[in-house]
Design a binder for these strands. Structure first.
Length: 156
DNA sequence: GCCAACGTTGGC
DNA sequence: GCCAACGTTGGC
């Protein structure tokens, strides 16, 4: 099993939105970065755990946990001219953009803020806090996973 | 709203 | 294949 961090802007789609979805599950569409797509396609597996991260908001933070619950499949929003994620260069017969379904597991009672992550020496090599790292889907080591849980006051 | 750090695009 | 111009991300 692998661990991941996935970013979402809470104004667009928050962890509470995820918790309110049917089956508490959402297709993670709209990824338009090749490196993030490749992680999803090649390295992710059903059952992998996800740190759900709120970005571009007042208090950026890991706010909870989700789980990967599907294989990879085409991101249909790339074919929808009405969608903000429309990509005219993604052929119908060879989809450029892909997605998986993720399911809500829990919301942290105590989110782990970006500033707390930056302040913790044990998390200094997290991809999230590397200079210029903008990846919206990134791998997380088991040590970092456990540390984040500890900081959130959650058991594993 | 600013802007640094990236990623992508397209002319050559 | 180079690289300038442009677009995006995301913290602050």
């Amino acid at each position: 099993m692998n661990y991941w961090l996935m970013k979402s802007e809470p104004d667009e789609f928050s962890i509470d939105d995820l918790a309110r979805r049917p089956n508490q599950t959402e297709g993670w569409h709209g990824i338009r970065n090749y490196q993030a797509r490749n992680f999803m396609r090649d390295a992710m597996q059903i059952g992998d755990r996800v740190l759900f991260y709120h970005s571009s908001c007042k208090v950026p933070a890991v706010v909870g946990i989700a789980e990967i619950v599907s294989d990879i499949y085409p991101d249909a929003s790339a074919w929808d001219p009405e969608s903000p994620y429309f990509d005219p260069k993604s052929p119908q017969d060879s989809p450029r953009w892909l997605q998986r379904d993720i399911r809500f597991i829990k919301r942290f009672t105590r989110p782990v803020t970006l500033s707390a992550i930056k302040a913790h020496p044990g998390l200094a090599d997290m991809l999230l806090v590397q200079k210029g790292s903008r990846l919206s889907i990134q791998p997380v080591s088991e040590a970092h996973w456990q540390l984040i849980h500890h900081m959130a006051g959650e058991s594993l």
